[in-house]
Design a protein around this nucleic acid. Structure first.
Lengths: 216, 216
DNA sequence: TCTTATCTCGAATAAAATTCGGAAATTTCA
DNA sequence: TGAAATTTCCGAATTTTATTCGAGATAAGA
């Protein structure tokens, strides 16, 4: 651990994310994702991270601050990841299908993260004013961009309000995920990806008259 | 307060819902709906209800039990109310439109209830095993029934998976409500009803070939 | 009016978050 | 290299809240 320049906050070195901070976050995701924010105790998170309770407060202002730091951290890693997966896919509707699949798949493999973002986070009164909210917005923005792209390339109806379209896509995906999180999580989430994508794409895409009418 | 028949539970009179219990619930909706479950204290709820803290525990096992009792109580009143509004409306798609409007309107007028049901409830570990979850299911079932009806009468595509269709409708509505709840709640929610209904109806309804193709 | 079963709540208890003060570790620089 | 300065860490005390206890208040029936 190296020394930082003279005048520093009263807090721990913030840049280059000390390993300890990462370890706390990892333990927090594990414990909170598993038992929920309510039932997770600072003592247990500290124990899992192999440090004393008080040390957590060197890195996070409060338990709530720790909760809010989770999506900020993870989303930072997530957005490049999904963008990477999106590369080489042509056409907004194909991208939308891929995005749906990717998201369901990610939550299925990381239910703790899904549980925190979709269930725990929104009860925090300060959520909207925190950068956690910005992180979520950046994530949703991917869907919005896909819809815009589709309207530009002519595959998605121009008359649709893009924000409403995003609400339908994001709302449907989240609703399916939330049901899964609340249930036993035994069945596969990704199995819904294709059918859901079909339905959403069908409601957004511009009908091609020459094709859809050839049977008349 | 009248005496109840001989052998009673170790608890307070459960039938005919004593006014005190109702008063506690009313205060709980007010305080929890406003500050959130976390920040609402039993002391404050008790004070608002004009009783001592300990009295709450005569009517509810715990703070969580009190939270879970709220949707059970309210949904009991809500379902007859919405069914009443639905009467006389012909056609599944018209019912869906009305349902969307009604729901958005109800939450706009009762944001405390909306906040509890959509934001606070889902973090409770016991939610799924509680009758609160059943109450929510009964509410969603209205949408499912509308979709079934639409498929039977031929206004909604038969090939759509009804559960997925419900997820899209409920998910979209809830997503719009949640954004509103998290923001300042200053703008009108019901303003979205029509456009949202258009979009959802459009994605579910069976296209009538003779009409959609007459311009060819 | 007296007895008994409820109801109510002030005060004690318990559990968990947060703060405090100083010890341990690390860094600086003479 | 050594010791002062700075930073990190944490055990123990404090604070905040939910929950329980037990005694007094209230009503019903004899």
């Amino acid at each position: 651990m190296k020394k930082k320049p003279k005048f520093i906050q009263n807090n721990v070195n913030e840049n280059q994310e000390s390993e300890k901070k990462k370890k706390i976050l990892t333990s927090a995701i594990k414990i909170i994702g598993d038992k929920g924010y309510q039932n997770a105790t600072i003592a247990e998170i500290a124990k899992d991270a192999g440090i004393g309770d008080a040390t957590i407060y060197e890195y996070f202002k409060s338990k709530e601050d720790l909760l809010l730091a989770i999506p900020v951290e993870i989303t930072k890693e997530l957005i490049p990841l999904i963008n990477d997966h999106m590369m080489g896919i042509k056409g907004a509707l194909n991208k939308l299908r891929k995005f749906i699949w990717w998201w369901l798949n990610y939550v299925e493999k990381n239910p703790g993260y899904g549980s925190i973002v979709l269930l725990e986070l929104k009860t925090s009164k300060t959520y909207v004013f925190n950068e956690a909210y910005q992180a979520a917005r950046n994530f949703y923005k991917i869907v919005l961009d896909i819809i815009k792209e589709g309207q530009e390339e002519g595959s998605i109806k121009k008359e649709i309000n893009i924000f409403l379209a995003r609400s339908i896509c994001v709302g449907a995906i989240e609703h399916i995920i939330i049901r899964w999180l609340l249930k036993d999580r035994k069945y596969s989430l990704t199995q819904y990806a294709d059918e859901l994508a079909d339905l959403l794409i069908n409601s957004l895409k511009k009908n091609e008259p020459n094709i859809s009418n050839k049977h008349l």
